[in-house]
Amino acid sequence: MSTPLLAALLLVLPLGALAGGAGGFTPLDRQQAAALMQPAQYREPTLIALWSSECAYCQQNLQVLARLQRQHPEVRIITLAVEAPGPELTRLYQRSGLRGVHYAYTDPVPESLNSAVDKNWGGELPRSYLFKQQEARGAVSGLLEVKAVEAAWGR
């Protein structure tokens, strides 16, 4: 290993460890966010929910998702906060009682998330994407209704 590379790693390693522990949120950049949206990886019913700590409707939506999770434990719920990890994000997520993987979009250019995730999404929150059997099953802006989600999954 070259000396400059080692020096770079020494700089990055402790910070990287801190990132992984940022309130339990895993940071995503724009390439990782694009990869998260690929349907081929979702055989089982999966819901990806975009949200923000500043969005009041998103907090209601987390409650809806927690209810959906209780009713359908087989559903995989992934949340993606459109902001860097912070105490408010952690507090709101923990309060919702949701379980699952939770990511935070950390690219400093907010509008880049649109091209990474969905060009037909204009940034409105909450925004949810449904997947099943390696296919996209729809996108919903606004507060989710459990029945509408069940219908999209053919239940």
């Binding site: 290993m1 590379l5 390693l13 910070l15 990132a19 860097a84 400093p108």
Partner: peptide, 20 residues
């Protein structure tokens, strides 16, 4: 260390950069 590991680590770093 293999290059892909280094890149993966770098992938976690941008959010740690100090904002303007």
């Amino acid at each position: 260390m293999q290059r892909r590991h280094f890149l993966a680590l770098m992938g976690t770093a941008p959010w740690l950069a100090l904002p303007a």
